[in-house]
Amino acid sequence: MKTNSVDLSLSTSIDDDNISNLIQEIKALTLRLFIQLIRRPSTLIAGILQPLIWLILFGALFSNAPDGFLPGGLSYGRFLGAGVIVFTAFSGALNAGLPVMFDREFGFLNRLLVAPLISRSSIVFASVIYITVISLLQSFAIMGTAALLGYGWPGSGGILLVSLTLLILVFAVTALSLGMAFALPGHIELIAVIFVINLPLLFASTALAPISYMPGWLGWLAALNPLTFAIEPIRAAYSGPLDLGLVILHAPYGDLNGYECLGILLGITIGLFLLIRPLLNRKLA
């Protein structure tokens, strides 16, 4: 559309009235997603059960791994918890584009686009809020189950760290998924792309095994994978007293401490968002 684009940064002269209008529209759009969730709880139930199954079955599969398999003599269950938390949040956020895609296909999006939304980014923010809440719910279920299985508890500092890390990750991946929901022609294509991205990113990360266990090339991939930068700080919270200043990732290109991991994750997120923003602006202008 050749109209002047609506700025996603919301920086354009907003007065008080506009802010309350903005809150009203984001609230309404978010409420819709939650009403859907409550009336169709199957996705939530599956979304909570699935990672628990991962945790229990995968944890059992490698529970007899030889000593020294994991750095610092960590038990596999303890090691796996962080991976499952991050992977669950990641796949949930990766699917965030699907409802938007269906709205596009069924014409419901048009209903929103003919309305005088203060910012059309409200549609994006509603999805981000929704996915973040679900991811946190899932994570607490995973952490609770992990504790019951004797895999430990990250402590209150750890929980704060988990929440912060997930927030960054979910924001980035949701933006990516929404970008795809607008760029791809239909839901079939979107599902195909999600399938192709999802599992390879899991296997090429440190979710299931440490880098030291991988062949060199895979170690490189894992050390560049954004998921790894989210997994390792959370894992650090599980393996002992939380100190982000300690080296937590032995990457082929050098050692990284907790702050550096989170910094890289944040950098990737901002970069991704800046990359996708023009697309969303164009599609939502």
Binding site: E25, Q36, F108
Partner: peptide, 23 residues
């Protein structure tokens, strides 16, 4: 032309959403 409703919402909820996006 193509009626787009959200099947999960009630008619009233849809109108409320509509009212909110028109502020």
């Amino acid at each position: 032309q193509e009626v787009a409703v959200d099947k999960i919402l009630t008619g009233r909820e849809l109108l409320q959403l509509q009212g909110d996006i028109y502020h």
